[in-house]
Design a protein around this nucleic acid. Structure first.
Lengths: 203, 203
DNA sequence: AAATATACTTACTTACTAGTAAGTAAGGAA
DNA sequence: TTCCTTACTTACTAGTAAGTAAGTATATTT
C-alpha cells in the first residue's frame, strides 16, 4: 500500500475527487472522470486507491486535516472572527458552484461502506466540535450572544452554512449572503464582508 | 404518453422512486431496484417513464401537489401551528431513516437535465414560499417573533429542517429534536411534541 | 551487477446502467 | 367482428461502472 513516497499523483487524485464530490456527488463521479482529467489510465487510480471507498475515506481524511489545521492556526483569534473565517471558506466554495463535503456526502450515507460511514461521522463531529468551541469562546468574550448549549447552537449554525451552499446553487448566489447575514445578526455580531478571491487558475 | 388511465402501477412506481431517492439518492437507485420490488420487468417502468428524468420530474411533481394540498388544508390554522405540522412531517421521515427531497436532490443538481433542474427550483421555491407565508402569518398573530424579512427567516427555518434530517441520520436521532427545539425557542413559541406515528406497514 | 520496490500501462472481466424494438394479451370502441 | 389502445413482457443494445491480472520502465537498495 503506497502512502508516503512520491505524492504528486496520489495528491492530485484526492484533490480531483474532492472537487468532483462537491460538484456532482460521490455516486455520480467515476474513476474514468479523474483518469480523463489527469491523462492516466483507470488502473493508475486503482493502484493508489484499490476501492472507491478508499478514495472517499482519503478525501474525508484530508478535510479532517484541514479542520485540525484551522483550529490550530486560528486558535489565537476571537470566536466570532473564527466563525466568520469558516463562513468565508464556505463563501469561496459557493462562488465555484461547489457545496461542502457534509452537504454532499450525508445524503448518500446509506450507500457507503461501514468504514466510510464511520469516517464521515468522524468528520461531522470534528466540524461540529470546532463550531461549538468557537461559539462558546465568542460567548465568553461577549462578542457572540445566544441561549442554549453551544453544541446545539453549533448544529443550527452548521446547518445554515451547509444549506446555504445547497440552496444558493439552486435559487441564486444571493441566498448565501442573505442567510449568513441573518445568522450573524442572530448571534449579535456585525455582518461579515465576503472577499471575492481571484480564482486559483488566475494565479 | 399514459397519464390518466389505470394509475395503480404508475403511482406505485412514483412512490417507490420517492422512497429510494430519500434513502439512497437519485443517482444511486436504478430502474432495476423498482422493478425488483414490484416484480415487473425493467421495461414496464420505461413504458410509464421513458427516461429517468421523467420519473424524477414526476416525483417532484407529487411533492408539489402535497405542498399545495397542505397549504389549502391547513390554511385555517395559525402560522405557528402550521410550522409545527410541517416539522412533524419531517419528524416522520427522520424516524424512517429518510431525508427530504430538497436535501436529497439539491446536492445532485448539476447532474440533472435542464427540465429536472427547473422542476427542482420550482419545488424549492414552493416550499420556501409556504414557510415564509406561515412565518409572516405567525408574526401578525403575535405567536411567532423574529426580525428581518419572513422570506430570509424561511431560508434559515427550511435550512434547519433539511439539515436535521441529514445530520440525525449520521449523528443520531436526538439531533432532530435538539435542532427543532432550539429553532422553535428562537421563534419565541413553545416547543412541539413529536408524535411517533405507527409505521404504515402496521396499518 | 542483481534484486527489489514504485508507479504505472495494457488488456481484460464482471456486473450493472439507461434505454429500445418487437411482440402479445386483454379490454373497449367502431 | 375487427381495430385500436393500454399495459405490459421478452430479448436485446450500447455504454459505463468498479475492479483485476499481468506486464513494464524507472529508480532505489543490496
Amino acid at each position: 500500500m503506497p502512502s508516503s513516497t512520491k505524492p504528486a499523483t496520489r495528491t492530485e487524485i484526492v484533490e480531483l475527487a474532492d472537487q468532483l464530490i462537491r460538484l456532482k456527488g460521490f455516486n455520480a463521479f467515476s474513476y474514468a472522470d479523474i483518469a480523463g482529467i489527469m491523462d492516466v489510465r483507470n488502473a493508475a487510480i486503482h493502484y493508489h486507491f484499490p476501492s472507491k471507498a478508499d478514495l472517499g475515506i482519503s478525501v474525508i481524511g484530508e478535510e479532517l486535516k484541514r479542520v485540525a489545521a484551522g483550529r490550530q492556526d486560528w486558535a489565537h483569534l476571537p470566536g466570532d472572527e473564527q466563525i466568520k473565517r469558516i463562513m468565508q471558506g464556505f463563501f469561496d466554495k459557493s462562488r465555484k458552484g461547489m457545496i461542502c463535503l457534509t452537504g454532499s456526502l450525508t445524503p448518500d450515507y446509506e450507500t457507503f461502506s461501514p468504514e466510510m460511514q464511520h469516517k464521515l461521522v468522524e468528520m461531522c463531529e470534528a466540524i461540529l466540535d470546532w463550531v461549538a468551541y468557537c461559539l462558546e469562546k465568542g460567548r465568553e468574550e461577549r462578542t457572540l450572544h445566544f441561549h442554549g448549549r453551544a453544541r446545539d447552537r453549533a448544529l443550527l449554525v452548521l446547518s445554515a452554512m451547509l444549506s446555504s451552499l445547497l440552496l444558493s446553487r439552486v435559487l441564486g448566489n444571493n441566498v448565501f449572503d442573505r442567510m449568513m447575514d441573518q445568522l450573524l445578526k442572530d448571534l449579535g455580531t456585525s455582518p461579515a464582508k465576503w472577499v471575492e478571491k481571484s480564482p486559483d487558475w488566475l494565479l
